[in-house]
Design a protein around this nucleic acid. Structure first.
Lengths: 123, 123
DNA sequence: AAATTGTATATATCGCATATATACAGCAAA
DNA sequence: TTTGCTGTATATATGCGATATATACAATTT
């Protein structure tokens, strides 16, 4: 488990952790059922508090990526891909809504917004 | 000048003011060259501090909506529509970038994002 | 000069985000 | 059943940014 915390990062510790873990799960380096390091071990390894690692795991659990069993440990969830997908979409949707609201307020047309999106998300 | 401040609003005072003023300018109720109430008068009328009204005007100035002349007052800018437009687009763009970044991180495809946008911005 | 305008500086306050220590509880394997 | 692992809950510290202020200053108009 190679999690790297950078004090130079603008992101808080708990977010750096969950971002990296989420990445590992999306790319498949972590598979359903895999055990994650215990919040204590990870905390010790990174020299941070248990509360912080717990916070990371909690967030990922809320997103549906992890399942945690009291007394046993935390594991990559047997997803349930449809549900996960919906959760992801909800997160994005909230961001998009902000942009759309702003666009409406400033009188930007739908087409313009769509063009911007296309330009930004080159794939 | 009918600006209404609601303490029940989740938005800070300075934002309530600038949002409402921006609205008036976009709809054309305030036209280029029109004078705005002095920060002092507006402050007195709304029973808030000059600093707060100033903050609102500053924000709108940065967006290109207003022009302010020391000792004279603040006026609706002779816009310069192309510039204004660009500024608006920049604001929206930043919001969109957040959404796109999140989408990339969560493995959402471009097309899905586009569909969401279409659904959200029904026009 | 007097009255208006906006500006600058220094400050108070509040709340949220971040991170923590420590005591508690559940499970499992020796 | 004891030992050692797991996660959980509570109460707290701290820092920082956002919000809002008073007040003294400067520029312009009449």
């Amino acid at each position: 488990m190679k999690i790297i915390i950078k004090n130079s990062s603008p992101d808080p510790i708990y977010k750096q952790i969950s971002d990296q873990l989420r990445g590992l799960m999306i790319t498949g380096e972590l598979k359903a059922g895999d055990a994650l390091p215990s919040i204590r071990n990870l905390a010790k390894e990174l020299r941070i508090s248990v509360i912080t690692t717990k916070r990371s795991y909690e967030d990922l659990e809320r997103e549906g990526f992890l399942e945690t069993v009291g007394g046993k440990g935390t594991f990559v969830a047997h997803q349930n891909k449809e549900f996960i997908k919906e959760q992801k979409l909800k997160i994005i949707e909230n961001k998009l809504i902000e942009a759309v609201d702003e666009a409406r307020m400033l009188g930007i047309k739908k087409k313009e917004l769509r063009d911007m999106l296309d330009a930004l998300y080159e794939n």
